[in-house]
Design a protein around this nucleic acid. Sequence first.
DNA 1: TATAAAACCTCTAGTCACTAGAGGTTCAAG
DNA 2: CTTGAACCTCTAGTGACTAGAGGTTTTATA
Lengths: 145, 145
Amino acid sequence: MINFMDLSIGVLSKQVGCKVPTIRYYEQIGLLSKPLRTNGNQRRYTQMHLQELAFIRHARELGFSIDSIKQLIAMNNDYEANSSGHLADEIAIRHLKKIEKKIEQLSLLRDEMKTMLVACAEGKSHNCQVMNILSDHQLCEHDHS
Amino acid sequence: MINFMDLSIGVLSKQVGCKVPTIRYYEQIGLLSKPLRTNGNQRRYTQMHLQELAFIRHARELGFSIDSIKQLIAMNNDYEANSSGHLADEIAIRHLKKIEKKIEQLSLLRDEMKTMLVACAEGKSHNCQVMNILSDHQLCEHDHS
DNA sequence: TATAAAACCTCTAGTCACTAGAGGTTCAAG
DNA sequence: CTTGAACCTCTAGTGACTAGAGGTTTTATA
């Protein structure tokens, strides 16, 4: 039963800030529930869908993988799992650790890039130091990542 | 003319710390020069290849895209472009800015995740705050990225 | 009412940087 | 000589989208 207040995919896209093809993609991979269709086969979304998609977008923007989001949604749909412990915050803690590790790695990279650019500025020579420093990495330890 | 000192792909892989399929991939996309082959069609790499691959790996580990690395290598091969200015460090500066922006975004995300987990710990309620906070994002401004 | 443009649809394939696996050949060691 | 390791090409998959072809439906305007 489609309600005149239901949203076309374009309207939903604008309200949530998620591209139309991405919404279709989410439905295809089973992340977002399928909406009802008009007689012309167009999707019409309810406010429930809007909240569902907003949840997904928020989690994606926080860097959760689609798989983690599926788990979160499954937990939300399963009242028993919800009451059996804080599985959602375990997922979030795991994710926070990933973010913190990524920040650490990027900070090391930033420092290395800055060092390289400082050397490049001081070099002032004909051969650019960026190239030299990248080339100077041969046979070194491989623990950058 | 293959020299007995030339390296098989497996040896090169170990010395540079780059997987065999990735080495083949780099050759396929034109990033790494093609080596000579044995009569049995096996690749044999010179020390020049080793330096070339080390350069590529270093740049990749620093987060340069393959396209940027292609540009850097092209500049290295073109003496005139090399002498016409510090194009390599312009690429590096551009890249540094990307890294710094990414760190900033991740730091915001980390802070948001921490806030969420603190709320979750204090909540102690039946409904986990991670789910609630993700759900509370509806119709907000979309400037997370 | 007719028309044209906008918005919708499915499907296929591409993006980026790899990665995996099938099915075969060559090399090296015992 | 035999066997296992290392090599080869080729195709397709990974994750999270994104693009485009070719078509249908909806909407707004004259």
